[in-house]
Design a protein around this nucleic acid. Structure first.
Lengths: 234, 234
DNA sequence: GTCTATAGTGCGATAGAC
DNA sequence: GTCTATCGCACTATAGAC
């Protein structure tokens, strides 16, 4: 395989710091802190701690007193960086969604061969979800905290990722390398398998399944079903 | 296919009433209500409303005031049926887990042919999750509300279902009808596909995918990968 | 059995000292 | 910029009338 997790990890260039710097620079009016270094450092601590506590017991169950204690900032200091617990939620939610979607698209845009692109899309999605595990898990589990009308955004994001796979599969069918009776259901299934990796991390980690094992296993599994075959049984 | 959702639905004999009656009869000391009919009726309303509200915004976010309003019982009346919000959680969690595991095992125990049994296990799991959707969703999403040491139970339950598939697959490999390099990963993948049906119900429902379409699709998908083949490409 | 009223707690948010 | 102290509120849980 041309792509491995180790290689990806070394080339991976997104840090939580960058996300926080980005957020800080775009919200200088509301964040009343002049020194960029201080603001970014504290924002990073806030987001990382929130992700940690949320992933453990849920965002609702995390109190700002918990966050204050674990992040080392006082209650008062926290409120320099956001105006309400609700806003803190939205910062993580929106920036996380954006970052993931962009990272995925950017790393796939130059690939044209559907066969290679499919494997690459699967690997990259798995690798991203491994390096940004807390963000993926947060986005999956905490969407219910959004009011009904804002959940649409998350739904669109789910469908957006799925669409990437739909396009690849359609292209492959057109080129005759895949034989698929239902492209949409096939994409849904691929998505489910990608998500299982970060939703059941405890299981795979306990069994010492490596991410590259999982990647090549599901690539095989999926290709068995979509590549034209002559079956011996039946 | 010998099994369809319509047929299953007609034969399905578990009601929330039964679960509540069972719970009531086993806890007569703590529930200070003499008339069985009254107790079961109210318990059913409590459980159904809790499931509804929890599935919408999460158990933590649901307040007992919400529950009181929606179920039609006063705050005081609610506390006749459970001693704390925590206990309410456990009632649903434990009874749900038991019910699901038992229902699955009971309906599979007489089947010996691994090929038939695999299809049956997949169909029945899907059908059960459809009819008891709120329970499945609750168990999946709310486990984090349990204290760390009690989460083991849920983990065991996840592995228990998976074990059912591991056993079937192993038997099939032994009998020469399946060719599987990694039985455990294959079972994990099957489980993930079963769960996607109830975790993304909004998606499948929006696309008008029926449960029998989904069932036969993933059965095909899985069998493509585990049945011995001669591949044309490669 | 079921209600209303309320005790007691811990939350999100803020004011004002430093 | 960051802290501590505190306000007001909404929550779980209960007491006591009916």
């Amino acid at each position: 395989m041309e792509l491995s997790f180790d290689k990806f990890k070394k080339e991976f260039d997104i840090t939580v710091d960058d996300i926080c710097r980005d957020y800080y620079l775009n919200n200088r009016e509301t964040i009343n802190i002049k020194k960029e270094a201080v603001a970014v450092k504290n924002l990073t601590a806030i987001l990382n701690t929130t992700l940690k506590l949320s992933n453990d017991k849920g965002f609702q169950a995390m109190t700002l007193r918990d966050l204050s204690k674990e992040s080392g900032l006082s209650m008062g200091a926290l409120y320099t960086y956001f105006t309400s617990k609700d806003e803190l939620f939205r910062i993580i939610h929106n920036h996380g969604m954006n970052m993931i979607n962009m990272a995925l698209v950017n790393r796939l845009k130059d690939e044209t061969d559907p066969d290679v692109k499919l494997r690459k899309a699967i690997s990259i999605h798995l690798y991203l979800s491994e390096l940004m595990h807390q963000w993926f898990y947060f986005l999956y589990m905490e969407t219910r905290n959004l009011p009904r009308d804002e959940r649409k955004l998350t739904i669109e994001s789910e469908l957006f990722t799925e669409q990437i796979f739909i396009d690849i599969l359609k292209q492959g069918v057109k080129g005759g390398i895949y034989s698929i009776e239902n492209v949409i259901l096939t994409s849904a299934v691929i998505k489910a398998l990608l998500q299982d990796w970060y939703l059941k991390r405890w299981k795979y980690s306990k069994r010492k399944t490596t991410i590259d094992q999982y990647a090549s296993f599901i690539i095989n599994f999926i290709e068995s079903s979509i590549k034209p075959v002559r079956r011996r049984t039946e």
